[in-house]
Design a binder for these strands. Structure first.
Length: 854
RNA sequence: GCCCCAGUGGUGGAAUGGUAGACGCGCCUGACUCAAAAUCAGGUGCCGCAAGGCGUGGGGGUUCAAGUCCCUCCUGGGGCACCA
């Protein structure tokens, strides 16, 4: 009996060898094609979770496979180390954010190392290091000089729990994305990045990203939110002021019955301030949007200013101007014209304030619509619209825009939903904005030679708000221009800043002069395969795309699109458990019997099994990867994660699944110990037995199939093919030297194909079958195409589309042969008894379908 | 409300319009064992003793042939949402 495979020792042995030999360290090699494989960098929370394991296993499979395929593969890792959790830990536990972060990095790195990842650790980056953020401060200044970073007073989303500003993207359903607290609106001076300058470029660029998931492209497209329409000017009756409005439905202009402006529109005060009830109304609008209930009810309210505008096409028509809470100041012009007949919101509003509702579009099929009851928003032709009558909607839009342009009152314009990216955070643990406020000179960038502006270490959290702002000395400095006393900007940057360019820093991590050299960027960029969670579909991925364009315009050599290929993995889920008191319980504390009953392991009390959900700390349905790696080893963990679900779908973590993977690891080792004496790696024999030929066909088709599956991210299918080959090897009994040669070939190919998934075991067995060089450095096996084609084909025989028999014929047998063989089958004869054959369809080597009827 | 995506055995999931259920989990039978675990051999979509019939969320359609294409409905998941 062979000694059982020692997972722990063997896995460590190979990791040490890879490290010692610097197997995965790379430099720019022009003789090979490059491949940049990148997993989204983790936040150093201190412990890896199963989602990380899935992410890095996927990127590792791709990296190892690409390396075998002859690519010069860069697969780096780093830490997204700035951010709020470190400060929360500081406040809760009195540790310093920096110390907390670095100790977390140490712990997490140990865990990652135990996964056996093919990472070039010499390029490791932590974004909280001044050596890192120095370069983004330099970029910030470049952006400022290029007009891409600017400061303005603006309404911000204020998170009252975290005491900080949130980006629009960080507000989910009116609540802070982390705290869950209802967001308030406050006015503050804030730094912004002018992402809107690239709105159209970012939209157009999506079309070139053919290796991105369709879903992510659609989400970004919606986020950018391009709409074409007409902007025009209303004259206000009896006043000099004008009202600009934007509409995507200029065709419905003759159906308008009111105009409306946002509560914070400049005209709001001008027209309304002296009217009774105005102040109350404005107060009511501001309340709306802060409280959760108000957001959900979202009732439309309006205030009649008493002022009127003239219809641009017919000054005799006068429309009342309302102030309405559903108009947004920061979209379009902050003003609209209302056409209640063909817009739901306008209809709601008109109904409430008893404004007239006119029909100007009629369905073409003559269907009657009751426009007073509900608006009609479908296709049709114009009615009650004078010169536009009879036109299709699209034609009427063009005609209305043309007419307005001729009148000199407006023009066709494009609007975007995308807003500039607010990057200011009133927080300590972030990259300091490298700016100085001087009473004389205004805002002055910190000179390049004074970078980085480092965070001070001696801070305290005794009071709420920003520790930088109340630090006794840090913010006091002198103006670089006039030399007078001045103060530093105390805002730090949104942490999405760091992750917008980290993949460039990996290319040149030791460069002290610039963030990265142009030459290295030209060699490695773009990232060939980026892998991470779909939760970053808009935020991180859009910011990174913006960053490339901004850097490009500041003279850096970067491609417009940072990520040529993107793969978004599914979540890892697990059943949830509650004890008899209704409290959540960790899976590790629960024993589940085969009949599906669960008890608390410690005292045998009953446990209720709940829904299968995304792993989350709050529901305790989490598995600690460290336990798994310790118990089953890295190979088993990796194999299980890859084998069950397609990577883009959710993966349910099950005890049975990980055990199955672990059994397979041990089985492979046992099989090899049995086969060891039966391998022949001498010269290739001239002929093979039928059984050996079958095995060889399986070996070669596995190599071809696994390659295709990995290329398509169908890792579960690749694993299935590897198991099939191992089953074929298991069932093969070599009888002569040629058989032994075929068996040796099968083992070599099995190990090569499985190496990206289970690198430790395959490396070990590779050595045991007599190889002197690392499998990690071995080229992907060459497929003998001739072997893939079998010389016979199994053909299905159907009668009226139902399977009645299968026949085996030589490949390429002609239609007549196939038809005759099919007709000779008992099952076929029986099925056509009493019927006459009308037609026979023969698809060579595939199917014969006999169409028969009475 | 709008926009995506997905519904296949007990279960995770396979299937260029051409033999539905590969591969795994679970389960059943057997071998080994005093016994159990591990391992090994075999079986396992449903109904039926069998012959056979029925089967990819429901209904309709295209086709010699539909899990796959088209229409429609249902269910689940995700994204966006006073965006004029």
């Amino acid at each position: 009996m062979a000694e059982r495979y020692n997972i722990k020792e063997t896995e460590k042995k190979w990791r040490d060898i890879w490290t010692a030999q610097k197997t995965f360290e790379v430099t720019e090699v022009t003789s090979k094609p490059k491949s940049y494989v990148l997993a989204m960098l983790p936040y150093p929370s201190g412990r890896i979770h199963v989602g990380h394991v899935r992410n890095y296993t996927l990127s590792d499979v791709v990296a190892r496979y690409k390396k075998a395929k002859g690519f010069n593969v860069l697969n780096p890792m780093g830490w997204d180390a700035l951010g709020l959790p470190a400060e929360n830990a500081a406040m809760e536990r009195g540790v310093h954010p920096q110390d907390w972060t670095y100790s977390n990095i140490d712990q997490m790195k140990k865990q990652l190392l135990s996964m056996g990842l093919a990472i070039d650790w010499s390029r490791e980056v932590a974004t909280c290091a001044p050596e890192y953020y120095k370069h983004e401060q330099s970029m910030f200044i470049s952006f400022y000089k290029a007009g891409l970073a600017y400061r303005r007073e603006s309404m911000v989303n204020w998170d009252p729990i975290e005491n900080t500003v949130l980006a629009n993207e960080q507000v989910v359903d009116g609540k802070g994305w982390r705290s869950g607290a209802p967001v308030e609106r406050r006015k503050l001076n804030q730094w912004f990045f002018r992402i809107t300058k690239y709105a159209d470029e970012l939209l157009e660029g999506l079309k070139t990203l053919d290796r991105w998931p369709e879903k992510v492209r659609i989400m970004q497209e919606n986020w950018i939110g391009k709409s074409q329409g007409l902007q025009f000017t209303f004259d206000i009756v009896g006043r000099d002021e004008k009202l600009d409005v934007f509409t995507t439905r200029p065709d419905t202009l003759y159906g308008s019955s009111f105009a409306a402006i946002a509560p914070d529109h400049p005209l709001s005060k001008t027209l309304g301030a002296d009217k009774p009830g105005y102040a109350d109304f404005i107060k009511q609008c501001q309340a709306g949007g802060t409280s959760e209930a108000a957001i959900e009810q979202a009732e439309k309210i309006g205030f009649d200013t008493g002022a009127k505008v003239q219809h641009p096409f017919d000054p005799s028509i006068q429309l009342p101007i309302y102030i309405a809470n559903f108009i947004l100041m920061d979209y379009g012009t902050g003003g609209i014209f209302g056409c209640p007949g063909h817009d739901q919101r306008d209809h709601d509003f008109a109904t409430k304030y008893k404004l007239p509702i006119y029909q100007v579009v009629a369905p073409e099929n003559g269907e009657k619509v009751d426009i007073q009851k509900e608006p009609y928003v479908g296709p049709g032709k114009m009615v009650n619209s004078r010169e536009f009558d009879g036109m299709e909607i699209e034609a009427a839009k063009s005609a209305a825009i043309a007419k307005m342009e001729n009148l000199g009152r407006g023009k066709g314009v494009t609007q975007y939903r995308l807003r500039d990216w607010g990057v200011s955070r009133q927080r300590y643990w972030g990259c300091p904005v490298p700016m100085i406020h001087c009473e004389v000179c205004g805002i002055v960038p910190v000179p390049e030679k004074d970078l980085p502006v480092k965070l001070p270490y001696d801070i305290n959290y005794d009071a709420p708000g920003n520790p930088l702002d109340r630090h006794p000395t840090w913010k006091h400095t002198t103006c670089p221009q006039c030399g007078k006393a001045a103060t530093r900007e105390t805002d730090t940057c949104d942490t999405f800043f760091e992750s917008s360019w980290y993949f460039l820093r990996y290319l040149d991590p030791k460069n002290t002069e610039r963030g990265f050299s142009d030459a290295k960027s030209k060699y490695w960029m773009a990232v060939d395969q980026y892998i991470g969670g779909v939760e970053h579909a808009v935020l991180h991925l859009l910011y990174s795309r913006f960053f490339m364009r901004a850097l490009r315009d500041c003279g850096y050599a970067v491609p417009d699109e940072p990520f040529a290929g993107l793969f978004t993995q599914g979540m890892v889920t697990h059943a949830t458990y509650k004890d008899k008191d209704g409290k959540w319980v960790f899976p590790a504390e629960v024993t589940v019997t085969p009949d599906g009953k669960a008890t608390l392991t410690s005292d045998g009390s009953p446990i209720t099994i709940g829904r299968i959900e995304k792993m989350s700390k709050s529901k305790k349905n989490v598995i600690d990867p460290e336990d798994i790696l310790e118990t089953y080893g890295a190979d088993a963990a990796r194999l299980f994660i890859l084998s069950d679900s397609p990577p883009e779908r959710d993966l349910e973590w099950t005890e049975g699944g990980i055990e199955g993977a672990w059994r397979f690891i041990n089985k492979l080792d046992r099989m090899l110990q049995d086969d060891k004496g039966n391998l022949n790696n001498a010269a290739k024999p001239g002929s093979f037995s039928d059984a050996a030929s079958d095995l060889r066909r399986k070996s070669h088709s596995t190599i071809a199939g696994v390659a295709k599956d990995i290329d398509n991210f169908a890792m579960n299918k690749a694993v299935a093919k590897i198991r099939e080959l191992s089953n074929a090897i298991d069932g093969f009994n070599p009888k002569d030297d040629a058989d032994k040669w075929a068996l040796n070939e099968a083992w070599s190919m099995l190990l090569a194909a499985a190496n990206p998934m289970i690198p430790h075991l395959t490396e070990e067995l590779w050595e045991q079958i007599g190889n002197k060089t690392l499998l990690a450095n071995t080229a992907w096996p060459k497929v003998e195409e001739a072997l893939l084609a079998s010389d016979t084909a199994t053909i299905a025989v159907q009668v009226n589309g139902k399977l009645r028999a299968t026949i085996t014929l030589p490949k390429g047998a002609d239609q007549k042969t196939a038809e005759e063989a099919a007709m000779a089958e008992e099952g076929v004869k029986r099925a056509i008894t009493g019927l006459s054959v009308k037609k026979v369809i023969v698809v060579p080597d595939r199917i014969v379908n006999i169409v028969a009827a009475a």
